Computed example of a mutant assay.
Amino acid sequence: MIRIEQVSKTFGQGKNSVVALAPLDQFIGEGEFIAIVGPSGCGKSTLLRIVAGLETATEGRITLGTSQLKRPVGFVFQDAVLLPWKTVAGNIRFPLDTSGVPRKVGDRKVEELVELVGLQGFENALPKQLSGGMKQRTAIARALADDPAILLMDEPFSAVDLMTREGLNDELLRIWQATGKTILLVTHSVEEAAYLGTKVMVMSARPGRLRKTYDVALPSPRTEETKTSADYLDLVGELKHMMRDADR
């Protein structure tokens, strides 16, 4: 699905240059859920932005299948970044309107997405009337509006409280299973990474290098009982150990 080949990123030039991301290789299969962890400033978000086309790699390339990555990519940021004057439905419809999707087709799509993210009854609410979790659900629905092949998520739940975050984790797993999307999630929480991912990529301190990719063999569906299983706790412990080493 995604082939990352020797992708690196350097900001600036000469003495003022900063290597944010060292050459990195990774293959991501269709429908996988990839969680990316690593120290602050190690290039996790930069990698996502390169995949999204928001940044240009200094070297290397990213391909989708056998062609250059051109199919729509959905992006969910740390802040929901909703248009404050538009309703939930209006925010979700926004990318459809800008793409010229007919109104009736867009209305049906918005209705499907509202149901998918569990926001029925809030279609006409403005962002200021929503909780943090509801704002992020709206942002996820908006990112899915163009039916992207890939959903990129840059610490989308870091600003909400723990209980809301855990609930959103379960919602995200449900959405992933319902849509079959390929998801790349950046997070600072190894617990979240282990719970959500089919694979976990561990990055080193800057310049960011891929230290190791873990295959997560936890059974699905994942539930609260998953978090008390020996396999989950062992994986969390191993990820924490790798993260401590990554800071050195």
Rank of each mutant, 00 (worst) to 15 (best):
V186T: 05
V18R: 02
I28S: 03
S45K: 09
S131V: 08
R222F: 09
L48I: 11
A89V: 06
Q68L: 14
L218G: 08
G60W: 05
G14I: 13
T87C: 14
S8L: 10
T179D: 06
Q6L: 09
L21D: 01
A143V: 07
L173K: 07
E166V: 12
Q129K: 14
K181C: 08
A149L: 14
D147V: 07
A230R: 15
L21Q: 00
I62Y: 03
E115I: 09
G90R: 07
L24N: 00
L144F: 06
R165A: 15
S229L: 03
A80C: 04
S8Q: 10
L69D: 00
L151R: 02
L47E: 00
L83P: 13
E55Q: 15
Q177D: 13
P102F: 07
P72H: 05
L196P: 06
A141T: 10
Q136C: 00
P148N: 08
V101G: 02
L218R: 02
M134W: 09
A125N: 14
Q78V: 08
P102L: 08
R248N: 02
A139R: 06
T56K: 15
E225D: 11
T182G: 06
L54Y: 11
E59C: 08
F157Q: 03
S229M: 06
Y232F: 15
R206V: 01
E238G: 04
A149T: 13
A89E: 01
V18S: 04
W176H: 15
L48M: 08
G53W: 05
Y214L: 06
A52K: 05
D245N: 12
E123M: 05
E191N: 06
M201G: 00
D147W: 07
F122Q: 06
P219K: 06
F77M: 10
G100Y: 08
A20M: 01
M134D: 02
G133E: 04
T198K: 14
M201A: 11
L69S: 03
P39H: 10
E191Y: 01
D79G: 04
A141G: 11
G197H: 04
L185D: 09
S45G: 12
R108L: 15
S220W: 11
A178V: 07
D79V: 13
L64R: 04
D79S: 13
I34E: 00
L96P: 01
E5W: 05
L185P: 03
D146H: 12
G60L: 04
G41D: 05
Q136L: 03
L24C: 00
L233W: 05
G90D: 09
G118I: 13
L185V: 13
T138D: 00
V117W: 03
L210C: 04
E59P: 01
L210Y: 01
D215P: 03
A143S: 14
D107G: 01
T98H: 03
I50H: 05
A159V: 09
T187Q: 08
E191C: 00
I62M: 03
E115G: 12
R211C: 04
L168P: 10
M242C: 13
G29W: 04
G90C: 10
G118A: 13
E123P: 08
A193S: 08
